[in-house]
Amino acid sequence: MAVIPFIGFLAFTGFPMVLSLFISFHDLHSYDLSQMTFVGLDNYKNMFTMPLFQTALVNTLYFCLSVPINLVSQLFLANLLTKPLNPHFAKAARLILYIPTVIGGVAISLIWNWILEANYGVINTILMAIGMEKVGFTTTREWFMPSVLLIKWWSVGLNILVFQAALSNVNASLKEAARIDGALDRQVFFRVTLPQIAPILIYTCTMNIIEAFGEISTMQIISGNGLGPSNSAVTLSYMMYRMAYVNIFTEGFGMASALGWVIGIITIIFVRASTWASKKWLSADD
């Protein structure tokens, strides 16, 4: 019986992966695999020398800053919500923080686009009303990515729920014992609570990194033209999409597959590094 999921994996994941690795060493500009020509490592070499690749890599890494920023703030909020608060306030806070998650990324991006719009956006209208200069939140290179990070921050709801669940499962007697031993709240949190929820933290971090490397939608909606000011909306994943479906004649599936593998390898490196760093940090605390 165990063979069924294995067949499914082979058919829908394993085979496409092997095929994309195979294609990455070929020149292919159509869906007809018989038109493939072997080019060795040329796709990889050409891709690394493309100026847009460097831009896309920097943009992706910049966007990955959202992972630590969001995790820290989400953990802070989750911890705050586990404290004995007015139950009505706690419910309202949870609702407010979770609504953006339910609404969905595209709708959230559209709303933020309206808020940050360069000429008539809510924030710029306020700025102008108080006599300040308009800010090109989504139209200048300097402001584009910070705006995207701000938008991504609002999709905090799911992680907060997960962290809240993890925090509520922390053994209360351990915290109590630490306090009796004279530990401050801060020390209790870092020395007792955090190690206890470490597996959840590492899991969330891993998933968020993978998600960050696959990011396309938010930036596409915010940028309008898909590329953004000075290509600041071009992430590695979006570049891969363009190679395969937009610039198929000059770049094509071969180069897109090569980029797919590069993205995969970079993601694995980041996930391994963050897992290693988390474990190192936790073991140093012991």
Binding site: G136, T139, T140, R141, N225, L227, G228, P229, S230, N231, V246, N247, I248, F249, T250, E251
Partner: peptide, 20 residues
């Protein structure tokens, strides 16, 4: 031409930065 990769090279900075 068969795709617009050549247009992106000059048109994107033109439309996003020069014209702005």
């Amino acid at each position: 031409l068969p795709d617009d990769a050549w247009i992106q090279v000059w048109a994107n900075p033109l439309n996003s930065e020069v014209r702005n």
